[in-house]
Amino acid sequence: RYTFRTRGPEQMKRVVEWARRQNLSYRVEVHGDEYIIHAE
């Protein structure tokens, strides 16, 4: 189980790509310009 905090969509997309390659399920929360990605 991982939690990532990123700023801006570019970093968020990179984390999502990584999670997909690992076959993890993930969800993204948006708080202003901060993205929180939960993957497991």
Rank of each mutant, 00 (worst) to 15 (best):
T6I: 14
W18A: 01
H31T: 08
K13R: 12
M12A: 10
V30W: 07
S25L: 11
G8N: 15
I36N: 01
I36A: 02
W18R: 00
Y2S: 03
I36V: 12
Y26Q: 00
R1W: 12
R5E: 04
H31M: 12
D33T: 09
E17Y: 05
H38T: 14
V15M: 05
E34R: 05
P9H: 13
N23G: 15
N23C: 14
V30N: 06
P9A: 13
Y35C: 09
A39G: 02
V15Y: 08
K13A: 13
A39M: 15
V16G: 00
M12F: 09
P9Y: 15
E17K: 06
Q22M: 15
T3M: 10
F4H: 02
V16N: 01
A39K: 01
V15A: 05
F4A: 01
A19R: 00
S25W: 13
E29K: 04
K13F: 09
R5L: 08
T6F: 08
E40I: 11
V16D: 02
W18L: 02
E40N: 09
R5N: 05
I37Q: 01
R7D: 07
E17R: 07
P9L: 15
R7F: 11
E10G: 06
R1F: 10
E29M: 07
A39Y: 10
T6Y: 03
P9R: 14
D33K: 08
V16F: 04
S25Q: 12
S25A: 11
W18K: 00
R20L: 11
Q11T: 09
T3V: 13
F4W: 12
W18H: 02
T6M: 07
Q11D: 09
E29I: 11
M12H: 02
E10P: 15
Y35V: 05
V16C: 11
R21V: 08
Y26I: 14
R1S: 12
Y2R: 05
G32W: 04
D33R: 06
R5P: 02
E29A: 05
A39T: 14
I37H: 00
R1A: 08
H31Y: 12
K13C: 14
R7E: 06
V30Q: 13
H38S: 08
S25E: 11
E34M: 13
I37Y: 01
T3D: 03
E10W: 06
L24P: 01
E17D: 12
E17W: 06
V16K: 03
L24F: 09
R1Q: 10
A39N: 01
E40T: 11
E29F: 10
W18F: 03
Y26M: 04
E17H: 05
R20H: 08
A39C: 15
E10M: 06
I36Q: 02
V28P: 01
R7W: 08
G32P: 03
Y2T: 04
T3P: 02
V28S: 00
R1C: 15
D33H: 07
T6L: 10
V28T: 03
A39Q: 02
G32A: 05
P9Q: 13
R20P: 00
F4G: 01
R7I: 09
R20Y: 05
I37W: 02
Q11H: 10
R20N: 08
I36H: 04
P9G: 08
N23E: 07
T3H: 11
F4D: 01
R21S: 14
H31F: 12
K13L: 14
Q22E: 09
R1G: 12
R5F: 11
K13G: 07
V30A: 08
A19S: 02
S25D: 09
Q22N: 15
A19G: 00
R27E: 09
E34P: 00
R5D: 02
V30Y: 09
E40R: 08
I36S: 01
T6S: 04
L24I: 06
D33F: 07
E40M: 12
Y26D: 01
K13Y: 10
N23P: 01
Q22I: 07
H31W: 11
H38N: 05
Y26S: 02
R14S: 07
I36E: 03
A19L: 15
I37D: 00
N23R: 09
G8A: 13
I37P: 00
G8C: 15
F4S: 01
R27H: 11
V28F: 03
K13H: 11
R14H: 05
E10I: 09
V30T: 08
Q11L: 09
V15F: 13
P9N: 08
Q22K: 11
E10F: 05
G8P: 00
R14K: 11
R5G: 02
R14E: 08
R20K: 14
I37A: 00
W18I: 02
Q22G: 06
L24D: 00
E29D: 05
E29V: 09
R14T: 07
L24N: 00
H38R: 09
V16S: 01
E34I: 14
E40Q: 12
E34D: 08
R14I: 13
R14F: 08
R14G: 04
S25T: 11
V16E: 04
H38A: 03
R7S: 10
R7N: 10
G8M: 13
V28Q: 01
Y26R: 00
G8E: 15
R20A: 09
E34G: 10
R1H: 14
P9F: 15
T3L: 10
R14Q: 10
E34W: 15
D33I: 05
R20T: 11
R20G: 04
E17S: 06
Q11K: 07
A39R: 01
Y2G: 02
I36D: 01
E17M: 07
Y35W: 09
W18M: 02
R27A: 06
I37M: 03
G32N: 06
L24Q: 01
E40H: 11
Y26W: 12
Y35D: 00
E29T: 09
V30H: 06
E17V: 04
V16R: 02
F4T: 02
S25R: 12
V15T: 03
G8I: 15
V15I: 14
E17L: 07
H38K: 06
F4L: 04
V30R: 13
I37F: 05
Y26H: 03
Q11F: 07
T3Y: 10
M12N: 01
K13V: 06
V15N: 00
V30M: 11
R14A: 12
Q22Y: 11
S25P: 05
K13D: 05
R5Q: 05
R20V: 13
R7L: 09
R21F: 06
R5K: 10
E29Y: 10
V16M: 06
N23F: 08
I37G: 00
F4M: 03
H31D: 13
Q11S: 10
G8V: 15
A19H: 02
V15Q: 01
M12K: 03
G8H: 15
E34V: 14
R27D: 05
M12P: 00
M12T: 06
H31C: 15
E29Q: 07
V30F: 09
E40F: 15
A39I: 15
G32C: 04
Q11Y: 06
I37S: 00
T6A: 14
R27M: 09
R20E: 13
R7P: 04
E40V: 12
H31L: 12
I36F: 06
P9I: 15
G32H: 04
S25N: 12
K13N: 09
R27W: 15
Q22D: 02
S25F: 12
Q11W: 06
H31Q: 13
E10S: 08
S25K: 13
G32E: 07
S25Y: 12
M12I: 06
R21G: 10
I37T: 00
G32I: 04
I36G: 01
V28A: 01
E10Q: 08
R21K: 12
Q11N: 12
E40L: 09
E40K: 08
E29L: 07
D33P: 05
R1I: 12
R27I: 13
Q22S: 08
K13P: 00
Q11R: 07
R14M: 11
T6R: 03
Y35G: 01
E10R: 07
V28Y: 03
G32F: 05
T6C: 15
F4I: 11
R27Q: 10
V30S: 06
P9S: 11
Y35F: 11
S25V: 13
I36T: 05
V16H: 01
W18S: 01
D33M: 07
